[in-house]
Amino acid sequence: MTVGLKQPPVDEGRKPQPSAGGRPPKRRRLLTMAKARPWLLLAPALILLAGLLLWPLARVFIFSLQDYGLRQIVSGKTKFIGLDNYAEVFGDSSLWTVVLPNTIGFAIVAVASTVIFGTLVALLMASLSPLWRTVVGSAVMVAWAMPAVTGTYVWIWIFDADQGLVNATLKGLGLMDESFNWFTNPVTFYGIVALNIVHHGFPFVAITVLAGLLGVPKEMLEAAEMDGAGPIRRFFQITYPTIKPVFSVVVILSTIWDFKVFAQIYLMPGGSGSNREVLNLGVWSYVESFGQNRYGFGAAIAVLLTVLLLIITAIYVRTLFKEEKV
């Protein structure tokens, strides 16, 4: 079960796609069977995806055009109000001063830190002996394994204003006179969230990039070293181009995960609505819907979040399809 026991089929993608349905059909009945088979195989997945992702996606848009409150949900009556919800979302000054900066700014910082840190860890791991690589790998797994909810509480505990380790240590070292509440200031609040996200998110990057790194042909690196290329140049000239697809995947996936971060904010002190300076799109949508019974308004915020992510997705799909033809 060690890394590299099985060859990752990295270059399989270059192979021509196998022709349809295994062996050539002999009779017409078989032909229709072969035609139907992929659809039969796909049916359960398609039904689930359509019913639980596509239809709800359409519905969230329909809701966003309504005054959809508790009374409407209970009675089942609809009341369309056109684009009023959107007008309110875009007319809300806190969208521009607080929510969007928090959402986008945080995603950029978190993605950059996660990917850079994860890559550095992967490079370090690649240079270790197999034993130490396993040790570090297991530690990284431990960080990954910590559920978001648990991890969030642990960080809250570490930064707790009255009993937390950080304040106690800083006070003990004489660096701080009065306890500081890390959760009230939006910058330190998001600093802790970033720490939480990086700690939880870098293992995916590290493990994926490491697997890619191990696939980089040694001969090329050695040849480059012979030519006198330093480690940084070797990384950017040989390693990076080889594992570029890996990077596009981890960057995009991290972006998507960090845009949607919810529990890590909602559970922090003040994060569920009382501290207005720390709202992001996800939490805002949730508290407006399930706290204020304004499901239509919440849906409009959700649509905004979806559109933002779909733009990123479009870029993702284009990058991937450019890299190799599916």
């Binding site: 204003a161 009065e178 306890s179 509440n181 959760f183 009382s274």
Partner: peptide, 10 residues
Amino acid sequence: HGFSTAGATT
């Protein structure tokens, strides 16, 4: 007056 604590803010 500082009768409270930093933690009490939340």
